[in-house]
Computed example of a mutant assay.
Amino acid sequence: MTSDMTARILRLLSLLQTRREWSGSDLAERLDVTVRTVRRDIDRLRELGYPVDSARGHAGGYRLAAGTDLPPLLLNDDEAVAIAVALRTAAGGLAGIEETALRALAKLEQVLPRRLRGQVTALQESVAGITWEDRGPRADPALLATLAVSCRDHEILTFDYTTRGGTTASRRVEPHHLIASGALWYLLAHDTEKDDWRLFRLDRITHPLPTGRRVPPRPVPGDDPAAFVADRLSAAPTRHRAVATVHAPADHIRARTRGLATRLRPAGENTCLLDASDDSLPRIARTLAGLDTDYTLDADPDVIAYLRDAARRALRATG
């Protein structure tokens, strides 16, 4: 009897989440109970903290109102698949919400039935978007989901990693944080074999395998994962060096330019340093062009030559 009542209340909650307002008679018909039973079940939902408003009248009406806390949402199969695909897309493509989308995706992936995971993967692989510019390698959404869960649960993970030199080796790590920098995603993790913090590009990770072993979280040096990763990236070798002194506050540039948060450093009240170093000369040019403010540049000769050639072509094109 208790299990029947619980199932009915969950069904009632699901119905309330699908329509702005229900009459008592409509709910009773859907649940195959009396209007009086519907009223009792509504009272039980209120006791559990759900803000259900009621309207006066012969039949009565009910709607789920906005409360101080977000109540648990009940999703059917199609809704769960749609949200999972949307979160995977948002995690790799929208500025400002990547980390939030990953946390939500980790929660959903944990409870998603196996029969639905195949649908999510199939949809993700079948849907394509038009890319108007070369944004570099993109992270696999399924890999993002796996790593997000491992970071949240502090679960030791193994995977194959291809280095910049092209060699591949197996790694065993304690995942800590996922960081987006421009078009690239990085995994910040503690390498158990080397007993040190390491940074792994997601486009070079293959065959991730959670081990099922959870460990206490390690504190990141400095207690700021993004700052720690930014320091590592600025110290990492790149083919072309380019550092701009921008004549604007760091917060001003950060708010107007996508993906540069980990590459900006305040240098004064109205100036900041931007490390635009990269392996690609066109990407350096696009990064600097996106600043939309004055700056001075300290860069390698090949960077200066490339930018001067690009400027001359632009001047000739404009007559």
Results as ranks from 00 to 15, higher is better:
97 I>K: 10
169 A>Q: 09
22 W>G: 01
254 R>Y: 14
20 R>E: 04
61 G>Q: 03
45 L>W: 04
102 L>K: 02
100 T>F: 10
184 L>Y: 13
154 H>Y: 09
212 G>K: 10
194 K>Q: 12
277 S>W: 00
186 Y>W: 07
235 A>N: 05
82 A>I: 03
240 H>A: 01
65 A>D: 09
87 L>K: 03
141 P>A: 07
111 V>C: 12
251 D>I: 11
195 D>E: 15
1 M>P: 07
203 D>T: 03
270 N>W: 10
189 A>S: 12
81 V>W: 03
99 E>R: 15
294 D>W: 14
240 H>T: 00
132 W>M: 11
119 Q>H: 12
65 A>F: 05
137 P>Q: 07
66 A>G: 11
38 V>D: 03
64 L>V: 02
281 L>Y: 01
186 Y>M: 02
272 C>E: 02
58 H>L: 15
206 T>M: 07
271 T>P: 05
67 G>M: 08
162 T>W: 00
169 A>E: 08
131 T>A: 15
99 E>V: 12
25 S>H: 09
123 L>R: 11
227 A>L: 04
1 M>I: 13
74 L>Y: 04
257 T>D: 07
263 R>H: 14
65 A>E: 08
244 A>T: 02
218 R>H: 13
20 R>C: 04
201 R>H: 05
250 A>S: 13
202 L>G: 00
220 V>D: 02
212 G>L: 13
127 V>P: 05
36 R>F: 10
241 R>S: 03
311 A>H: 08
200 F>T: 00
107 K>L: 10
148 A>S: 12
19 R>M: 14
110 Q>G: 10
36 R>I: 14
56 R>G: 10
258 R>E: 15
185 W>H: 09
297 L>N: 01
176 H>W: 05
101 A>E: 04
312 R>T: 11
205 I>V: 14
278 D>N: 14
17 Q>A: 08
245 T>E: 06
111 V>F: 10
175 P>F: 00
50 Y>S: 04
249 P>V: 06
74 L>V: 09
117 R>W: 02
189 A>P: 07
282 P>M: 11
156 I>S: 00
37 T>I: 08
189 A>K: 03
182 G>W: 01
274 L>C: 05
17 Q>S: 13
34 T>N: 11
238 T>A: 09
99 E>F: 10
65 A>H: 03
264 L>Y: 02
223 D>M: 13
272 C>V: 06
237 P>N: 04
231 D>A: 09
210 P>N: 06
197 W>Y: 04
136 G>N: 01
202 L>N: 00
266 P>D: 08
228 F>H: 05
143 L>R: 06
146 T>K: 01
223 D>F: 11
192 T>D: 13
114 R>A: 14
102 L>Y: 02
191 D>T: 09
192 T>Y: 05
13 L>A: 12
298 D>H: 09
225 P>F: 10
112 L>R: 01
246 V>E: 05
102 L>C: 04
210 P>F: 02
282 P>V: 09
273 L>N: 01
289 A>F: 08
274 L>T: 04
122 A>F: 08
210 P>V: 06
4 D>F: 14
181 S>F: 04
79 E>N: 11
192 T>F: 06
229 V>C: 09
237 P>G: 01
155 E>N: 08
164 R>Q: 13
228 F>G: 00
203 D>W: 01
222 G>F: 00
285 A>Q: 07
167 T>I: 13
255 A>H: 07
42 I>M: 08
296 T>M: 13
21 E>R: 14
128 A>G: 08
121 T>D: 07
235 A>K: 05
301 P>C: 08
